[in-house]
Write a protein that binds this DNA or RNA. Structure first.
Lengths: 218, 218
DNA sequence: GGGGATATTATACTTAGGTATTATTGATAG
DNA sequence: CTATCAATAATACCTAAGTATAATATCCCC
């Protein structure tokens, strides 16, 4: 199934291997003004670049020989943060529990009313909007961090641990002035206006030793 | 399954208005080494101080004329972070979805096997342990923050916004030296070893203007 | 082999941050 | 009424941080 990638807002991704379901979901969503982006398999979805306007996915539990719930967990592992509404023909409570615990924003069992689906989508949109900001920050922090050299990353870890330049110099076995230069580069590359800024940005990264300062003497 | 239940985490809270259910849950849990703390109503639970060993709650959906799911949401609003396993006699998917979305760690519909419940409790314990650390940090940060005077709180907001002492002095209309003194008091009262520490602690608080520094000139 | 990025260091200077001491004022609790 | 705390401020001193300039060495790519 080929679709031109929509450029509009409010793009709903449909991942379902049943043509009839695809058609009826597509009809409903288009009738209320959404754009759809339809996939029949997880592979098809994963190999297609997703437009940034994508704000919600409708995911079937039964996708050929792929379990939709397994796939949901795989998405999370891949860092795909698109809100997902799970739709299933034969759902039960353990399945619903697993789906929500895996991060789905809703779990709908057929038959359901159109309004229920549309409400679920509205909730997902809300969640999407709320996540956009922190997602953006995380992405930006990650991108900036990627431009740091290895040494700069080491110095940055020390900085956000609360170490003084002198201590950093000792730890890395370099001179004080070198630390200062690295530090200046870090602030510039990370686009941080202040140390407080840098520390908050680092919270979006996965830097480990955040608590060194708590164990240092005095 | 439970090789050893730590004494610090052995208390299961049961909130169910059915005496028979209370008895059977109590028997099962005691047989595997847990201690139980049984309540028949939400009022009874809310008015009784909870021992720190409490690590998990088993919550019935039907509590007289109180809806267990409503109560779960109320608990969250009151800041009660005890992991909750919902148990119900007549559950359906929407109910399960709501329960998990409201923060329950599991949703069990009768009849269920004992092992299912015990597994759910084990998972809750895991969650409880993971939450303990950040809960502790948040509580500590909040407690320390509460000891700050009004002026010190104002200065602290400026500090974590990334403002320099001079800028803080201008903004608050006080002298540079006074800002420095406030700052020293803040670091001491907050038990922060470094500015990075203070910024991270502030993340556990609900201080608003974290992004002032992004808008300052230069 | 030259250009560029990275890493390093030095000197010199400026600004920012932290500490100690002392002191005044106003409010509040005992 | 007095003691304490909060808030303010001045002086003086010291340390930490930041900036500018210049220089050296390595490594990799074209």
């Amino acid at each position: 199934m080929f679709h031109k990638i929509p450029k509009e807002q409010n793009l709903i991704v449909i991942l379902d291997d049943d043509k009839d379901v695809q058609f009826s979901l597509d009809s409903l969503l288009r009738s209320v003004g959404f754009t759809t982006f339809i996939f029949s398999s997880t592979d098809e979805f994963l190999t297609t670049p997703l437009p940034p306007q994508a704000c919600c996915m409708l995911l079937d539990v039964k996708l050929g020989n792929v379990n939709g719930l397994d796939f949901l967990e795989e998405m999370a592992q891949r860092g795909l943060t698109l809100p997902v509404i799970i739709i299933t023909g034969h759902g039960d409570i353990p399945m619903a529990v697993r789906g929500i615990k895996s991060g789905a924003t809703d779990f709908l069992s057929k038959p359901y009313k159109d309004t229920v689906l549309l409400n679920a989508i509205a909730d997902s949109l809300e969640k999407w909007r709320n996540n956009q900001e922190s997602q953006e920050k995380k992405k930006q922090a990650t991108d900036y961090y990627a431009t740091l050299s290895q040494r700069e990353k080491e110095v940055m870890e020390c900085i956000i641990s609360g170490l003084m330049n002198k201590q950093i110099a000792d730890r890395l076995g370099i001179s004080l002035i070198t630390v200062k230069i690295h530090r200046a580069h870090i602030m510039k590359k990370m686009h941080a206006q202040s140390l407080a800024d840098l520390v908050r940005m680092s919270e979006y990264l996965n830097l480990h030793n955040k608590e060194i300062s708590r164990y240092k003497n005095k």
